[in-house]
Structure formats: C-alpha cells, structure tokens
Computed example of a mutant assay.
Amino acid sequence: MHPVQNDAVETPTLGLRERKKLARREALIDATHRLVAEHGLDAVTVEAICEEAGVSTRTFFNYFETKDDAVLGHTPWPVDSPAAETFASGGPTGHLLADLQVFVNSLLTAAPIGRERLAVGLELAAREPRLLARHMAWMEQHRGQLCVLVDRRLGEASPYSAEMVGATLLFLTHATFLRWDAAGGTGDASEQVGAVVADLRSILSD
C-alpha cells in the first residue's frame, strides 16, 4: 500500500483557516494509515501518530476521538450535502428506492478526505473487524439527521412509514459499506448498492 498524497477534494470556497484544518486532518489520516499498514492497529499509539504527523496529542483529539476514527477517516458526514437536499426534495428520479440508492452512493463516496484515502481506510478495516464495528456505530450516530431528511422527503401524505424508510436507508448504507469494504474499496459504491438492492429483492421475493 502506498501513502496517499494530494488527495484532497477540491474546496475552492474554503477560507484559509478551513484549508489548514483540512490539511491537518489529512496529515493525521495519512500518518495513521502509514503506521497501521506497517505495524498493525494494536501496535500503533496516538502518540506515535502525532510524532509521525508532527502535531501534539491535543491537536489529534481536536480532530478524532480515537485512533480507529483516524484510520477510518471519520469526518463530519455530508448529511447536509446537495445530494441530501435533492433526496429530501423528491429527487433525483422521483422513485423512492432509486433515490435511496443515489443518496447512499453519495454518502459513501462524497467523503471530504477524498476517494483514495477512503479506499485505504477500507483496506485497513478489512483486516481489523473492530474497525467495521466502529464505523457502523459512527454511522448510527447520524440516524437523527437521516430521519429528518426522510420526513421531509415523505411528507404527511406518504403511504410509507418514515421509520421504515429510515431503517431501510441505514440498512442500505451499512450493507453497501460492508460489501464495498469486502471488495477493497474498488469500483464504484453505486455498483455495490445496486447489488445490495438486487439481493434484497431476491430475498423478499423468495
């Protein structure tokens, strides 16, 4: 595995302070990836990561709760993204299941840390089962935000249960992440969510 360089998502609207914060977060993620790839998760300490990245431990904890979060590149999830607004407003196709698939794809691929760092995190997570559990728990923390979007999408007159649609959204996100992780983060997440939906249809029609 090669260290990831210059993989930031272009953010021309960010101010200097925000760009510096993004660069520091990426440096911590890259340092964590290098050390974990070389020594294994359990052998790497937060102190070692900070020394590698040239920052203090206090700085590390301004960005991540644990080293596991740094491996996974956990950043504020883009639940308030343009894709989320499109979904809540009834798009992009007007068909609920198809739009759920598009939204799940956006949640998994619009990572501020960039596609390559995300792929490295997935590769490392495949070796460490506890990282998968951590990622699932992290996504679960966003249930409330997702439920607000689902409520907006469905409105009061919808024949669907907001609770059921929200649970479906979380399931698709979880299952797609696991499938994408098993594939080493290769390919497009939209391919994986499509395969998850196909499997689900097959199970329900059996």
Score class of each variant (00 low, 15 high):
Ala31Phe: 04
Ala31Trp: 05
Ala31Ser: 04
Thr32Arg: 04
His33Phe: 11
His33Pro: 09
His33Asp: 02
His33Ile: 03
Arg34Ala: 14
Arg34Gln: 15
Leu35Gly: 10
Leu35Cys: 15
Val36His: 13
Val36Met: 11
Val36Cys: 11
Val36Phe: 08
Ala37Thr: 15
Glu38Ser: 15
Glu38Arg: 15
Glu38Val: 09
His39Phe: 15
His39Leu: 14
His39Tyr: 14
Gly40His: 12
Leu41Trp: 12
Leu41Met: 14
Leu41Thr: 05
Asp42His: 13
Asp42Ala: 11
Asp42Pro: 02
Asp42Arg: 11
Asp42Leu: 09
Asp42Glu: 12
Asp42Gln: 13
Ala43Gly: 13
Ala43Pro: 11
Val44Gln: 10
Val44Asp: 12
Val46His: 07
Val46Glu: 02
Val46Gly: 08
Glu47Val: 15
Ile49Asn: 07
Ile49Asp: 03
Cys50Phe: 05
Cys50Pro: 06
Cys50Asn: 13
Glu51Gln: 15
Glu51Thr: 13
Glu52Asp: 11
Glu52Tyr: 06
Ala53Trp: 10
Ala53Ser: 02
Ala53Glu: 06
Ala53Phe: 09
Gly54Ser: 03
Ser56Cys: 10
Ser56Tyr: 11
Ser56Gln: 08
Ser56His: 13
Thr57Arg: 14
Thr57Ile: 03
Thr57Val: 09
Thr57Lys: 10
Arg58Pro: 00
Arg58Asn: 09
Arg58Glu: 08
Arg58Lys: 08
Arg58Tyr: 04
Thr59Leu: 01
Thr59Val: 12
Thr59Trp: 02
Thr59Ser: 12
Phe60Ala: 00
Phe60His: 01
Phe60Met: 02
Phe60Ser: 02
Phe61Ile: 00
Asn62Arg: 08
Asn62Cys: 01
Tyr63Leu: 01
Tyr63Cys: 03
Phe64Gly: 02
Phe64Glu: 04
Phe64Arg: 05
Glu65His: 05
Glu65Gly: 00
Thr66His: 08
Lys67Val: 03
Lys67Glu: 08
Lys67Met: 01
Lys67Phe: 09
Lys67Gly: 07
Asp68His: 08
Asp69Ile: 01
Asp69His: 13
Asp69Leu: 00
Ala70Asn: 07
Ala70Gly: 04
Ala70Ser: 15
Val71Gln: 03
Val71Leu: 09
Val71Glu: 10
Val71Cys: 01
Val71Pro: 06
Leu72Met: 13
Leu72Ile: 10
Leu72Glu: 06
Leu72Asn: 04
Gly73Tyr: 11
His74Ser: 04
His74Pro: 03
Pro76Asn: 06
Pro76Cys: 07
Pro76Lys: 12
Trp77Arg: 11
Trp77Lys: 07
Trp77Glu: 09
Trp77Asp: 06
Pro78Tyr: 02
Pro78Ser: 02
Pro78Asp: 04
Val79Met: 03
Val79Cys: 08
Val79Lys: 08
Asp80Leu: 13
Ser81Phe: 00
Pro82Asp: 05
Pro82Gly: 03
Pro82His: 06
Pro82Gln: 01
Pro82Ile: 00
Ala83Asn: 04
Ala84Asp: 07
Ala84Lys: 01
Glu85Trp: 06
Glu85Ile: 07
Glu85Ser: 13
Glu85Asp: 15
Thr86Gln: 11
Thr86Ser: 10
Thr86Trp: 00
Thr86Asp: 03
Thr86Cys: 07
Thr86Glu: 12
Phe87Ala: 05
Ala88Ser: 14
Ala88Asn: 04
Ser89Gly: 10
Ser89Gln: 12
Ser89Phe: 01
Gly90Asn: 08
Gly90Tyr: 00
Gly90Phe: 02
Gly90Cys: 09
Gly91Gln: 04
Gly91Tyr: 01
Pro92Asn: 04
Pro92Gln: 05
Thr93Ser: 14
